[in-house]
């Protein structure tokens, strides 16, 4: 892992429909550094600016003010830099299955690499590799994407972005609308991709549990500002503030808070079942010793 951040966001501000009565300020002076290979969960209320922020990262939206640097280079500098940003920062939108259009799964996954002007051999390698990453069988590659199930379509759409081998993979609610098993599987697939390639991943999510389980770092947005930025431990220790923002804290954090209210002196930040178990055992152990 190199020391310089892969993405650096400097004083990013975005105002929609500037100069009209519909003026709406979505981002207010965001400063962030995304390190190489980091897995980050981005959390925020609806309208907190999450979607606006991530669309800046590959120059789909131009900043009203501020700069975004990819590997030290301003991504909005020229047409060339925009193109580069689009292939190095992969963006998977919400419900990506609605963007499938090709006759076969293979062709759809190949759309991104083809736009990068790779050789057919290289494209073939990438399509097969990314299909494997998301758990799509080889035999499905020649089927029409429209014959497949919702969960499979979602994977194919994600594979379509992974096939570009982006150094930063940004996913907007990749698990929305899937059943728990499907959610878990997709997350495991994505984490597998992350481990194998070492590429950074930014996951926008509403689910605190999932963010806590997979991310090393969490960024909480509120009203277009970074409200919190730190490890899950640090973020969940500020439970009251999270609740004030209208965000649901993980169930275990909630339970720990209630138990503390009943007089159980649980220690530390608790947001997983394991942490709860350990804290309870410590407590029980303490009593036995006494």
């Amino acid at each position: 892992m190199s020391k310089t951040p892969i993405l650096k966001i400097e004083n990013l501000t975005h105002v929609y429909s500037k100069g009209t009565p519909f003026e709406l300020s979505a981002l207010n002076g965001i400063n962030l550094e995304i390190g190489r290979g980091e897995v980050i969960g981005i959390i925020g209320h609806t309208g907190s600016g999450k979607s606006t922020l991530i669309q800046h990262l590959n120059a789909l939206i131009k900043p009203t003010e501020g700069k975004i640097y990819l590997d030290g280079k301003d991504i909005n500098e020229s047409k060339q830099s925009v193109k580069e940003a689009r292939s190095r920062v992969g963006l998977v939108f919400q419900y990506p299955e609605y963007q499938l259009f090709e006759e076969t799964v293979y062709k759809d996954i190949a759309f991104g690499p083809k736009n990068m002007r790779l050789t057919p051999d290289e494209i073939d390698v990438r399509v097969r590799a990314s299909a494997q990453f998301v758990g799509i069988d080889e035999e499905l590659l020649e089927r029409s994407p429209f014959d497949l199930s919702g969960g499979q379509k979602r994977r194919i759409a994600i594979a379509g972005v992974i096939a570009m081998l982006p150094e930063v993979l940004v996913l907007d609610e990749p698990m929305a609308g899937l059943d728990p098993a499907g959610r878990r599987e997709i997350m495991e697939n994505l984490m597998g991709y992350h481990r194998e390639t070492g590429n950074a991943m930014l996951i926008v999510t509403h689910s605190m549990e999932e963010a806590a389980r997979y991310a090393q770092r969490m960024i909480v947005l509120e009203h277009g500002r970074v409200a919190m930025d730190g490890t899950p431990d640090q973020v969940f220790s500020r439970e009251k503030e999270l609740k004030e923002m209208g965000l649901a804290v993980p169930e275990m954090t909630e339970l720990a808070e209630k138990l503390r209210g009943c007089g159980l002196p649980l220690e530390g930040t608790i947001y997983t079942v394991e942490q709860m178990r350990d804290a309870l055992l410590r407590l029980g152990g303490g009593r036995q010793d006494a």
């Binding site: 689009r86 963006l91 998977v92």
Partner: peptide
Amino acid sequence: KIMSAQKARG
């Protein structure tokens, strides 16, 4: 939305 998504794929 679709335009943005396809642009993101280059």
